[in-house]
Design a protein around this nucleic acid. Structure first.
Length: 513
RNA sequence: GGCGCGUUGGUCAAGGGGUUAAGACGCCUCCCUUUCACGGAGGAAUCACGGGUUCGAAUCCCGUACGUGCUACCA
């Protein structure tokens, strides 16, 4: 806990550092969310840094997409490639020159070395060792003296290779036999031996840094106080801690926290973009046009509210211990505690995700909900010019809508004539009912007003006169007006539909019976 | 294989020496509602296993199993 307080004494600066290689999936958004919550809770800064050091995996448009996803989710950063800030540039490719100098400094200090082995040579060696039944080759303390690097070459040879622009990388020289200890805010004390950590490449042959160098240099330069990332980074954490030591920045090392993975609903393993397609649910926040898989719909396109999306994500790895599950972003900012983040992964449950959305649809203020539903109506070509009516309709049907797309099926009959499932009523139809509805048309046509209670009273009066139970008539009327056995009260619907439309629908149905 | 991390109902989980082991999703039953929902009441279902420590273990320790992550000039 000491370390926590040490960090807490600094200005809180956290960063979300995705690489622009494709759609932003659940796990990424959740990491961003926890960063956002932590930053806002401590009055700190939330930075978006784009880790685009791998030119081979760079995907055009991915960066803007990430920014858009964060914006839709309501967790936009304070500093980013798009907004700027005083610690830029926020794209690692634009900081390329920076990394080399630190890598060189590590070499000069004896903490790193030049390695001239080509990827092919290393691969060939690996293959050979494997065929001899030996363990995987780790380029590290046990093998580095067998390789072609500035440790095995003479100074003159090394300089010669460097001068002739021989492709090379710079590797960290990990000293074996050291116990690396650090505090993880979600897992407690972590201790690992350097015996099993290999000499990671720090600077690639193309001059770009690897993640290991870049994350340390950038976190330090950007004065990041707390470094949060996925659990998959835990095994390489010793490299990063070592780098802080070798670079002399140990006292300014950020506090670490490694978040649990989000797992596949079936079986186990990290949730991947293919799982969504395979199991029929979204894994991306928003629609993403994948170069390999094609257009993949996101939570937004499926009809999720951003409030529900982030609420659901937050609960997939954290809770406040009280049993409360529905949180607004603001409430989460207040309630979030990094040490209550779970240390084990959770399987994603789409049913539960939908439940969150349903809760949020019911909870949202009418005006706000309308703004989310309107685009769906407009896409269907519905006439939404009468705002009050539209708002009324939405309020009436929202309890029945789990996804925003459900507003279409639950309220289309208000906007256009439904396809009436006559078989729902034709079976129990008889002449008396025909007579009733003819009488009803007559009565309602002559009626001066069109208020709910007038409709109900007159309806029941005729029913009682003709000695038919209202229940036998209510359902047919519903089906005639709505198309099926669902929806709000029939007279409420009639009021919104208006006199003309209501009577037309009854008339038309009578013609089909 | 090596190293790390983890393991409470089908799923998400609270609980960290003494509890009838919360709650939520989903499922089932009933009530409300002359529809469907919403809402309400109830139900089935759990501490991975084995050893310790202890008067007492889901909780602490060790081991095993299982899961998962990493083991790239990817992040």
């Amino acid at each position: 806990m000491d370390e926590f307080y040490l960090c807490a004494m600094r200005r809180v600066r956290v960063r979300f550092a995705p690489s622009p290689t494709g759609g932003l999936h659940l796990g990424g958004v959740r990491t961003a969310l926890y960063n956002y919550l932590f930053a806002h809770q401590h009055g700190g800064d939330f930075v978006l840094r784009v880790e685009d050091t791998d030119r081979t995996r760079f995907v055009e448009g991915a960066e803007q997409y990430i920014i858009d996803c964060l914006e839709w989710s309501g967790i936009s950063p304070d500093e980013s490639p798009a907004h700027g800030g005083s610690y830029g540039p926020y794209r690692q490719s634009e900081r390329k020159e920076l990394y080399r100098q630190y890598a060189e400094r590590l070499v000069a200090d004896g903490h790193a070395y030049y390695a001239f082995d080509t990827p092919e040579e290393i691969e060939a060696l690996r293959e050979r060792l494997k065929s001899e039944g030996r363990e995987n080759l780790q380029y590290g303390h046990q093998s580095r003296m067998l390789m072609k690097n500035s440790l095995t070459l003479t100074e003159a040879q090394t300089q010669e290779l460097l001068k002739s622009n021989t492709p090379h990388v710079i590797r960290i020289k990990v000293e074996p036999g050291i116990n690396i200890k650090f505090t993880d805010l979600v897992r407690g004390e972590i201790e690992m031996s350097t015996d099993t950590v290999d000499d990671k490449v720090l600077l690639k042959a193309d001059g770009m840094p690897t993640y290991h160098l870049a994350v340390v240099v950038d976190d330090h330069q950007m004065q990041i106080s707390h470094a949060f990332r996925g659990e998959e980074w835990l095994p390489s954490a010793p490299v990063h801690v070592l780098l802080y030591q070798y670079l002399g920045w140990e006292s300014e090392m950020p506090c670490w926290a490694h978040f649990p993975l989000i797992l596949k609903p079936d079986g186990n393993g990290k949730l991947s973009k293919r799982d969504g397609q395979r199991l029929g649910f979204p894994v991306f926040a928003m629609e993403w046009d994948d170069p390999n898989l094609g257009l993949i719909a996101g939570f937004r396109e499926l009809g999720f509210l951003p409030q529900a999306f982030i609420n659901m994500l937050a609960m997939l790895g954290w809770n406040d211990g009280t049993g409360k599950e529905i949180f607004s972003l603001g409430e989460m900012v207040d309630a979030f505690r990094i040490d209550r983040v779970h240390s084990h992964g959770a399987k994603f449950d789409f049913e539960k995700a939908k439940w969150f959305n349903h809760e949020w649809i019911m909870k949202l203020e009418a005006d706000e909900l309308v703004s989310y539903v309107l685009p769906w109506y407009e896409k269907e070509g519905y006439d939404v010019s009468e705002k009050d009516v539209v708002k009324h309709i939405i309020t009436m049907v929202k309890d029945r809508c789990t996804l925003l797309s459900d507003f279409i099926s639950q309220s289309s009959f208000f906007f256009k004539k439904p396809e009436v499932q006559m078989e729902l009523i034709s079976g129990k139809w008889n002449e008396k009912k025909t007579a009733f509805f003819k009488a009803l048309i007559e009565k309602w046509t002559a009626m001066a007003g069109w208020a709910h209670d007038d409709l109900e009273h007159s309806f029941k009066a005729i029913a009682s006169e003709m000695e038919i139970k209202p229940g036998e008539l209510l359902l047919p009327l519903r089906v005639i007006l709505v198309g099926g056995k669902f929806g709000p009260g029939v007279f409420d619907i009639s009021v919104i539909l208006g006199k003309k439309e209501t009577l037309e629908r009854i008339q038309a149905a009578l013609g089909m019976l």
